[in-house]
Nucleic acid binder design. Structure first.
Lengths: 130, 130
DNA sequence: CTGAATCCCTGCCGATACTG
DNA sequence: CAGTATCGGCAGGGATTCAG
C-alpha cells in the first residue's frame, strides 16, 4: 500500500485520540506500547534479522555473535510475548526451535524505516550528554 | 510535505546502507540515534508538549505535574543537546527560559506518528514479561 | 525561576554455570 | 540445542537539597 487510510490529524504526532492526553507515561499509550516492544539493547537488530527471514536460535547466534545466549533468549521471549514472533519447536533430535515474524511483527518495517530516516538526517551531533 | 523523496528499498526497514550491517548495537546506526533521542521516561511526552507549541520551564511543569524538576531538567538538556530543542534565556527578572522545537525536532512528528500507529494496532497483549 | 548536586533504589545487561 | 538460574556492575530516575 502506498498510503494509510487512518485519519490523519492536522499536526503529525498529535493524534486527536483520548489516549493522547496522558499526564504521565502509561503503558496504554500506543507510543509507549511500541517503544516497549522495541525496548532493550539488541532488540532492533534481532528484529532486523527476522525481516530478512525466519531463524532458529543457533542461526541468530551466528548472525549476532556478540549477543549472549541469555540476552538472546530474553529478546526472543520478549518479542514472542509482544506478538512479534511465533515460536515453533520442531520435534526430533537435536532440538531446534524455529522463530518466525508474525504479520504484526512484519508491520514494524515502516516503523524502523521511520526511525532510520530521522536518524539519518541528524544535524549537528553533540557527543557530550550521553 | 506529503511524501518523502528518499529512496525506498524494496523491503521496508531494511535499507541498503552500509551502516545497516552492524554486528552489534552502535551509536552510529541511525535507528540507534533516533532511539537515543527518544530515550528515557517522559521524553516522548515532553516532545509532545512541544509539538503543541514552545514552552518555558514552568509551563512544562504545569503541563506535566508528575514530572520532577530534575528529570525535566535532564530531558530538556538531553533534547537540546540532540538538536531537538533550542534554549533561549530571556533577560530580566524573574529568570525565564524559553524552549522551542527546532525544525529537526519538529520532523520527529512523523516518527511519533509511526510509533502511535503501530502501537494502536496491537493484536493480543500478554501482560506478563514486562 | 531554573537547574545542578547528591543519595538511594531499581532494573538492565553481561558472564558463568547448570538443566531438559 | 535451547534455554534457565544466579550474581555483579552500572546507568536511569525519583526525592531532596543547594546555587545562580
Amino acid at each position: 500500500m502506498t498510503h494509510q487510510t487512518v485519519s490523519h490529524p492536522a499536526r503529525p504526532g498529535l493524534p486527536d485520540d483520548p489516549r493522547a492526553n496522558v499526564p504521565a507515561p502509561t503503558p496504554s499509550c500506543p507510543v509507549e506500547i511500541t517503544l516497549a516492544a522495541l525496548h532493550g539493547r539488541w532488540t532492533t537488530l534481532v528484529i532486523r534479522e527476522f525481516l530478512k527471514g525466519d531463524h532458529t536460535f543457533s542461526e541468530l547466534r551466528e548472525a549476532l555473535p556478540d549477543l549472549s545466549d541469555k540476552v538472546l533468549s530474553d529478546r526472543l521471549a520478549h518479542l514472542t510475548n509482544a506478538g512479534i514472533l511465533t515460536r515453533h519447536r520442531e520435534p526430533g533430535w537435536p532440538p531446534r526451535v524455529h522463530y518466525t515474524l508474525t504479520p504484526h511483527g512484519r508491520s514494524l518495517g515502516p516503523v524502523l524505516q521511520a526511525l532510520w530516516d530521522w536518524g539519518s538526517t541528524a544535524p549537528t551531533r553533540h557527543p557530550e550528554d550521553g
